[in-house]
Design a protein around this nucleic acid. Structure first.
Lengths: 138, 138
DNA sequence: TTCGATGCAAAAAGTTTGCAGCGAA
DNA sequence: TTCGCTGCAAACTTTTTGCATCGAA
């Protein structure tokens, strides 16, 4: 089931601008900054504005339909929210990759550790140095 | 062993400004934004500048002596880098709490999933709604 | 028809940088 | 004495907001 279908089912008001934002996220599948989403959306609909892209991304993130990752400077948006996965982030250049960890199903926060929070999800980010940064020395 | 000792051992040049930054982080123990560190540092040394606070925080984070958490808008700095722990973040207000999860010692990234990255650490953030935001309705 | 989404531009928020001078080791 | 840290102010990046208008449902 693709992102646009899921959004329609969620009753999200669908405008041409919002459609190209969703399409940009879906077509890449990976992790895009707001700026990157904006550039791709604009290829399809030149009059879309950056503010509208931010509005749409914030709503999608609040709905839980896309993930918002804030590892380094700029936030990145991930359309794969419906497929459980973890991330691998380069501490040098900020590059992100999707991964599947082992043992994540045993990861639990005991009730006494919940501090009254209502739990929604767990985000797991492995940090390291990507092959390119390693090759580039240090 | 406190933060200042660890920094001295690491050969970090210690100036009055850097000292009050480290002291501010240590005295609170929790999670502070750069601005909060700045305000606290300034109570002890009024002429310290925000740029210097950012310089110091960035160096400390790069050294691995403090953790930098970028869950929401502003980055937060955590002096407890030498004690393994996870975080619990409120998706509404951004409040952070330290927690200890169960099963985290079994969490592994299989070699075939490492994509050539050199692994350094794992960051685990539980997301939820804090008691205050729940009380405040929805 | 209605109410929410949009574009634009301006502002806010967060962070980094350049440079001359100062001070920790 | 030296090299790196500092303050200041300005620049930069990222994100949000106000408001009049437009269009999806």
């Amino acid at each position: 089931m693709d992102l646009l279908e899921r959004l329609r089912d969620a009753g999200w008001r669908l405008t041409p601008q919002r459609r190209v934002v969703a399409e940009a996220l879906q077509e890449v599948g990976g992790h895009l900054t707001a700026e990157e989403v904006y550039l791709r959306a604009r290829e399809r609909l030149p009059e879309v504005s950056l503010a509208t892209v931010y509005n749409a991304l914030n709503e999608l993130a609040a709905m839980g339909q896309v993930l918002c990752l804030a590892t380094d400077g700029a936030k990145k948006y991930d359309a794969n929210a419906h497929v459980p996965h973890q991330h691998l982030a380069c501490v040098r250049c900020g590059r992100l990759a999707d991964v599947r960890a082992r043992g994540e199903d045993h990861l639990r926060l005991p009730a006494k550790e919940r501090r009254g929070y209502e739990l929604l999800s767990v985000e797991i980010v492995f940090k390291g140095i990507c092959p390119d940064c390693r090759a580039r020395g240090n």
